[in-house]
């Protein structure tokens, strides 16, 4: 069963609706003790990464998150929280994955926010993409991105530059797009996450 870290940053209605459509069970995590009730976890998030980090810290859940050994999936800003720093408000984040979250450079002649369906290329061995066609489109909406890093990037997308669409370190995964809004491909990804050993 999936535990959703509840910290007041973001629209979790769409996420729980997607899990309901897939018949995946979930519950909310409000206290450190709640983590024991679940075997995998989602950290959602929209809005400002710095504000989201403050809210997460106020819940007191950060130490328990750092100690998790079961699969964790950060979505959008929830993914960025896994990194060590965001240029958004020059914020210090959890640092679970040693990467930086940066602002897209408008000099690349791209529109910001990066909004819409972009192709995602999963790297070999990426278990979250089982059953998903290579180069499938996923729905993105964000102004900040996580740099490409061959140690932690397990799927990449391109928007002016190559960036991390999906990152992983051990049991921690993060997706920059919104699987709950990404049609069948997104639903398959959530299903794959729910079945990770």
């Amino acid at each position: 069963m999936i535990g959703i870290v509840y910290y007041g940053a973001g629209n979790i209605f769409s996420l729980t609706a997607a899990l309901d459509r897939l018949g995946l069970e979930y519950g909310m995590i409000h206290t450190a003790e709640d983590f024991d009730k679940f075997d995998r976890f989602i950290i959602p998030g929209v809005g400002h990464a710095g504000s989201a980090m403050k809210k997460l810290e106020q819940t007191g859940l950060v130490p328990a998150i750092l100690n998790l050994r079961k699969p964790v999936l950060g979505i959008c800003v929830g993914m960025q929280l896994l990194t060590e720093f965001s240029e958004e408000g020059n914020s210090t984040l959890t640092g679970i994955i040693p990467l930086k979250t940066r602002l897209f450079d408008e000099h690349l002649k791209i529109k910001i926010p990066h909004t819409g369906w972009n192709r995602v290329s999963a790297l070999p061995g990426n278990v979250l993409f089982d059953g998903i066609s290579p180069g499938a489109h996923f729905y993105f909406v964000h102004s900040y991105f996580i740099e490409f890093n061959s140690n932690f990037t397990i799927a990449l997308a391109e928007y002016g530059i190559k960036f991390s669409a999906v990152i992983q370190k051990n049991n921690f995964f993060g997706v920059q797009f919104h699987p709950e809004k990404s049609g069948l491909a997104g639903e398959q990804l959530l299903k794959n996450f729910s079945q990770l050993a």
């Binding site: 209605f13 769409s14 609706a17 919104h178 809004k181 990404s182 049609g183 069948l184």
Partner: peptide
């Protein structure tokens, strides 16, 4: 909005 978000998997 709730009905749409419940049943539709696109933005």
């Amino acid at each position: 909005v709730k009905s749409v978000a419940t049943q539709i998997n696109i933005p």
